[in-house]
Amino acid sequence: MFCVMPDQNVAVRLRGLRKSFGPVEAVAGVDLDIADGEFFAMLGPSGSGKTTVLRMIAGFETPTAGTVELGGRDVTRLAPFERDVNTVFQDYALFPHMSVRENVEYGLRVKKVPRAERRERAAEALRSVRLAGFEQRRPAQLSGGQRQRVALARALVNRPRVLLLDEPLGALDLKLREEMQVELKELQRRVGITFLFVTHDQEEALTMSDRVAVFDQGRIEQVGTPAEVYERPSTVFVAGFVGTSNLISGEAAEAVLGRPGTFSVRPEKLRLVLDLDAPVGDGDHSATGRIAEVVYAGAATRFVVDLDAGPRIVVLQQNLQVSSMDVTGLRETRVRLVWDRRHEFSVAS
């Protein structure tokens, strides 16, 4: 489940991490190594324990069992102010009674950095998040996206070993979120600090991170690059949470694929063929069915197909030549689905 790395390159190391809140086990044994300079995502539905893991790394929660190491040092029992990490909070947690500059300088002031250096570093941090000139504003006078960037500057100005981000883009609208995804990625490359962020948005995790850990029920289901997690999900949960799973199992698997087990094919790997008698290539598998629903979404169309063998499969087709008028008329049509065998993978249930 995890690969062991040499100590000097490990920014965060979790071993047997557990946390119970009364009878509820929020984190049920997590082992994880995060390398220096990595952009790492912890992905999972709400209640999967990812935020609790983040809070244990930051020091806001004490683990029930297990250890947290930062840069090779055991910090499991240390208070937040004794750890070389900083956090960007989901609600930003800017101090409302302080100006933007006072917010950003707060950590430096605590560390007794001289005033001149403090000013300079705060100005530089604000420049790096494109907020130069906002020093005198109060958080209440900023937009959501600007507050988010102040929170980033306030954390980064301390040059922590690891930056923790708790659903950093959750409160932003879609357009801004997409902009910030790119911006965060660039920022991380520039400053070279390890970014560890928590999200429930699979697209965000896939587009931004170097590696992803998928959480479910307090455990890590899979760790890997976005491509690995998406193309080769190791469990049914990962297949379903990261993208559409399109599961074929039991008798259907025997009928369609000729072997037992549980299999999955991503919607965009499937081709929709209207000619039911068209020849199927050597390396391909195919199955027939009926289109139950057509969802036109501009750039692409989603077809929901009920296979004759049983399972319901989603097919995603780029709208290269067709328009909504063409595709919506296809409901109730019988079709053949064709896919490359290499794109079907077996998953553990």
């Binding site: 937040p80 909070f89 947690a93 707060y106």
Partner: peptide
């Protein structure tokens, strides 16, 4: 979160 943030920043 404001209390957490202060502790996080070293206070």
């Amino acid at each position: 979160s404001l209390l957490d943030a202060a502790g996080d920043l070293g206070a």
